[in-house]
Amino acid sequence: MNKEIFSEKAFKLILKGTGIVIFMIPALLLVTLIVQSVPAVRAYGAGFIFRQTWDPVREIYGALPFLAGTLVTSFLALILAFPFSFSVALILSEYLKEGTAAAIVKSAVELLAGIPSVIYGFWGLLVLVPLIRKLELAAGIPPYGVSILAASIILAIMIIPYASTIAREVMSMIPPDIKEAAYSLGGTHWEVQRKVVIPTSYSGIFAGVLLALGRALGETMAVTMVIGNTNKLFSNIFEPGNTMASVIANEFTEAVSDLYLSSLIELGLLLFIVTALINFIGRLIIKRFEVKGAGE
């Protein structure tokens, strides 16, 4: 019996220990990134964020082009993806719960979610980029093809499954009796969506947009492959650029000097902090929404 008591104690200890280890991972990750960024922070301070030049040869590192690239591609992708994600969420949660159309949309979204990022990038590079190049030629703009725009389009396709899943979850948290009440007053499908479902899920939808933004900010491979990898600040979305993630992917293995590496890691640190914050806020809103939705 003593042996059993011992193993029981040991088991509980292991459980708790694992919990502590898992809790430590992001903390350790943060500390690691901070420590590794110290040389860059020391060298540039806050100027790192505002400087336009990124020149490894002269050892000048400014992150502005990448910050701009990340923000512009992510927001553009969000805007492009929004109507689709929103419609998909409406279709799957409210409009056509059954039927072939809903089933097709549902599997399409699931399959899109399963395609690896690198394949999106490859497809974008060989199919989308030439298409954009043709359009640019026709419009008389420099035909880069690889561009902020290409990256945004690929990103948009990639975040649709994620955003629509969250929006759908949020909408399905709305107590069904509220919808029933609306129908019992003679509301049509559309009116019930417009005036009950959507207003009730505003905060949840906002959280979904935030979480999708978090996804888009950190997405690396697909963006790297179609954005053109230029360290100059772009002046319009048809020009090539770079995002924080894509410049890390591109230059990390080539970074020879400590300052170069440290600057790249500082980009990673910024990315980590921003995505962690966005995710935290998004999850918090959804949790509140969950509580509000379930217990009247």
């Binding site: 107590p175 009796d177 509220i178 029933e180 009440a181 609306a182 019992s184 007053l185 003679g186 509301g187 049509t188 009116e191 019930v192 005036k195 009950v196 207003p199 009730t200 509000k292 009247e296």
Partner: peptide
């Protein structure tokens, strides 16, 4: 419109005021 319904559990619209809840049928429609 001609046949109204009240449910097992009270289900006022959570985003609407008391006033709006009463005329919810008009607002919704």
């Amino acid at each position: 419109r001609k046949i109204g319904m009240v449910f097992q559990r009270p289900n006022p619209f959570p985003t609407m005021t008391i006033y709006e809840n009463v005329i919810a049928g008009y607002l919704l429609n």
